[in-house]
């Protein structure tokens, strides 16, 4: 049970929803967003969380 969870990347279809420190990946469709999130998560050994507003975050726990 670690408490140092970190956001490694953000994948979004709407750039106006996001900002800040983590790398942001822009997707043009829901399929592309999912694909990018999947690839990032596997590459970073991290988890995908769905914020349900078209934004995915890739976080490591």
């Amino acid at each position: 049970m670690s408490t140092d969870a970190r956001i490694l990347a953000v994948v979004t279809e709407d750039m106006s929803l996001v900002g800040g420190g983590a790398p942001i990946f822009f997707a043009r469709s829901p399929e592309e967003r999912e694909r990018i999130a999947r690839y990032l998560a596997r590459a970073l050994d991290a988890m995908v969380h769905d914020l349900e507003n078209g934004v995915y975050i890739i976080a490591r726990h």
Binding site: E34, A37, R38, A41, M47, V48, H49, D50, Y56, I57
Partner: peptide, 9 residues
């Protein structure tokens, strides 16, 4: 429990 983002997972 946790938020699982990817539908296939």
């Amino acid at each position: 429990f946790i938020n699982v983002g990817l539908p296939e997972v």
